[in-house]
Design a protein around this nucleic acid. Sequence first.
RNA 1: CGGGAUGUAGCGCAGCUUGGUAGCGCACUGUGUUCGGGUCGCAGGGGUCGCAAGUUCGAAUCUUGUCAUCCCGACCA
Length: 577
Amino acid sequence: MRMSKLFIQTLREFPSDAEVISHKLLVRAGYIRKLANGVYNYLPLMWRVIKKIENIVREEMDSAGAQELLMPFVQPSELWQESGRWDVYGKELMRLKDRHNREMCLGPTHEEVITSIAREGIRSYKQLPVNLYQIQSKFRDEIRPRFGLLRGREFIMKDAYSFDVDEQGLDKSYSVMADAYKKIFERCGLETKMVQSDSGAIGGSVSHEFMVLVNEDSENNAGENDVFYCPNCDYSANSNHAVSLLNQTETDGKFTSQEIVDTPNTHSIEELSEYLNIPSSVICKCLIYVIDGKYVAALIRGDRNVEETKLMNAFSGNDIRIASSGEIEEIMQASGFNAQIGFIGPKGLKNVEIIADETVKDLKNFVIGVNQTDKHLVGANWGIDIDLPSKITDIRLVEENDKCVNCNSALKVTKGIEVGNIFKLGTKYSKAMNATFTDKDGQEKPFIMGCYGIGITRTAAAAVERHHDEWGIKWPLSIAPFTVIVVPVSDQDELQMTSAENIYKKLLDNNVEVLIDDRPERAGVKLKDADLIGIPYRITVGKTITDNLVEFKDRQTGKTDIISPDEAVNRILMLKN
RNA sequence: CGGGAUGUAGCGCAGCUUGGUAGCGCACUGUGUUCGGGUCGCAGGGGUCGCAAGUUCGAAUCUUGUCAUCCCGACCA
């Protein structure tokens, strides 16, 4: 490809609306252009990268026994009614009506459609197992799209769905996919960690996410997930799912008799612990949440925080948020109290379900709110003044240095970009949608399903997050839009131009993806652009060509060698083997 | 959804306080110059100042509304 013909516009400056480095670089280097909030044009260079990633995904999926197909981007609401998700998916699901006023949606994922395909096409256990996948644009109307390709509303995703006769079959399909994913990301030049995670709106039981860890060189917060992992064993989990052993700390308060004391203006745990001169670990914190429209009071030890996803799952909810101050007033009024935020307690709350984290179980002589402003109960004990809630489970956010449940080592935390995930769905969709097959014993049974996603465009952005420097992108060879760029320093110099053309032709003849910068630009412009767009290798043809020498530069390492044109060509050809 | 900010040429920005026919840099067109890390000069083209009302003889500038975009928050009790 000739640079003079390539559709590309590099910018001298970073775009003003970009925050993270992958977004800044992809726009500046002419890979993407924003069309609307969270919606991007993939320009020719970007499309080449995307196709590279897609092909790696295809090769590994195919060799893992999956078959590619393509489902519609627009889906009828009926299928979503069947699965029950039309009412629970929320605003992320982009709904629309056709001219006949039929309700449709833009596909955010395809469990419903694939299940309908399976129930029509698979009648017998003899046809199983099957794994079907597609690579396609998805649309999710995110609350807050950001970070360019990392969290867009429209994005390209590979989604695969497996169908098995039983759990053992699913286990096998699942581990085959896990292995394929490892290979895929490895081949894309990305080191990933497979971590346990919550299964969220998709449903199901077991799930793992593939995370690109981004803590080390975090000049920004591109990693949207906190990943807890054990340095000594293989335990790792997304914070929304992570568990830990209870840490040893002071849980027996110094107050020996129970008594309601004045605690003026102690609206936070910190203020309260300071005012009473006690550790926060002997305070029982009470937080009011709204889960699917219902009020929930969550009790947790004062030194710990609630993990909302865990809390939501404890009630099998779909939506959770902290209650607003107005809602808390409402609860207070309904319960006959008048307390401000900071003094709320579980006792006497009307129309509020109460749940406790495991951490509060062992509290003794502790401090807790009693729905009286500027007062707290001290020296409280469960069963004496306040009953221990019957619903007790783990709803706490793990913290760094908590102990690993497997090996008791101190856990560490890092940021991660989720580039892939795998779920065991079980029969959630097949049962709801009545998708069955006839088993050996002649019985109708629902399919045992799994689903497996990879964010293609997010993977590309994650690669930029991991591979760049102050000059631009440093694509891993396997997903770079071109392998090598040939740069004649001066378009005035005939020898340089003809030599560069020769090198270009030789590489072309050998099916190398090669770019030649034949634009009538000065050397500086061409060299800066080559670095910016991140082609892995650069062959620079300058004055030394009179001695039959060119510069060979490795973008990844920055290493340069002065060698003959033939050797430069050979080095590139060697890469193909 | 709450808070903050910004919308002026393809990109990055100034001008707005104190209303008077819209500017700079990059990019683009022509031309000369230069030629290994975004040369230097000359001459050009390109803008309903986000949109809509209002005030005024006159609005990019003042007022109101509206739309869009970005950031922060929605783990604080």
